[in-house]
């Protein structure tokens, strides 16, 4: 083998490796590097502070609140999105104009930009002039504060996330359901299986790869929530909707505590990385049936 033959494959993949390194690998390592420094983004001097940024983070009340907000937001969003879309998919998994319409309708938010969605829901949830409170009023209930009250603000953001995510999730579930052959249901019917038993013992286990995929994808997505918070609440009121990515953005680009923000970024990277590893580990232990 000549030197050229040995080098050629590396030459071929070089362009993508270079771009990948510049925009993914280098920033990650630079972030890890920055997390050990105190830096204000403009000054030429960076002060090495060791693990001080991490120590500060872990003792910071706000950061703890941010972590708990993010976890709570993720758990609620994932549970509601996955649960509701499975329910919807079971209902929509049949032919008919009406079902096709509903499927299309719930999918449409998926293709709308999150900025538009955030603006739309800010208006819908306006305590004074919003549509939601008007509807609630029709039924004689008291007006809700939605995004303006610490007790309801996080849940309000969850509602927006579920509304946006449910169409895509339902679509994936329907695809999963349609990959189950019709004769499996028929065999179950001949085995005197009641609908709930068929669902629990046959359909749910066969859907488990789909459920698993969606839970992980939704979790990773929810952990990185940013747009809705930046536009709708800016982390407020009283830090009740401040989440990890928004916190990083705030510290880095508004307070210019780059080292501190980088340390938070490292923690986010660790969490998302861990989720991804868990996903691939569990995925490889599952066998798809054909």
């Amino acid at each position: 083998m000549t030197a050229w033959e040995k080098l050629r494959p590396y030459g071929m993949v070089a362009p993508s490796i270079i771009i990948f390194s510049m925009f993914f690998i280098y920033p990650i390592f630079y972030m890890i590097y920055l997390s050990f420094y105190d830096w204000n983004f403009v000054s030429p001097d960076k002060t090495f502070v060791g693990l001080q940024n991490f120590k500060d983070l872990l003792t910071d009340e706000d950061f703890r609140q941010v972590l708990s907000n993010t976890t709570l937001y993720t758990l609620m969003t994932v549970a509601l999105t996955t649960g509701l879309s499975l329910f919807l998919a079971l209902w929509l998994n049949r032919k008919g104009v009406f079902h096709a319409f509903v499927q299309g309708a719930i999918f449409s938010p998926h293709i709308i930009s999150l900025v538009s969605i955030s603006l739309l829901w800010s208006w819908l949830m306006d305590p004074e002039y919003g549509l939601l409170n008007w509807v609630i009023g029709l039924f004689g209930f008291e007006k809700m504060q939605w995004l303006s009250h610490p007790e309801t603000s996080l849940v309000s953001l969850v509602i927006v996330a579920v509304w946006k995510g449910i169409g895509y999730n339902t679509l994936v579930f329907i695809a999963g359901l349609q990959s189950i052959p019709a004769d499996i249901y028929e065999a179950a019917a001949l085995d005197q299986s009641k609908p709930w038993t068929t669902f629990r013992r046959i359909i749910l286990p066969m859907l488990s790869p789909t459920i698993f995929f969606l839970v992980i994808i939704n979790m990773i997505g929810s952990f990185q929530v940013f747009e809705t918070i930046a536009i709708m609440t800016q982390g407020g009121p009283v830090n009740s909707t401040n989440t990890l990515v928004y916190y990083i953005y705030e510290n880095g680009f508004r307070f210019f505590k780059i080292g501190y923000a980088s340390a938070a970024g490292v923690i986010l990277l660790a969490i998302v990385g861990l989720l991804t590893i868990v996903y691939f580990r569990l995925l490889s232990s599952r066998v798809h049936y054909r």
Partner: peptide, 13 residues
């Protein structure tokens, strides 16, 4: 009782 063309076995059992 029925035997199906594609057997229709429950794959997860």
């Amino acid at each position: 009782a029925m035997v199906f063309q594609n057997y229709a076995l429950y794959p997860t059992m």
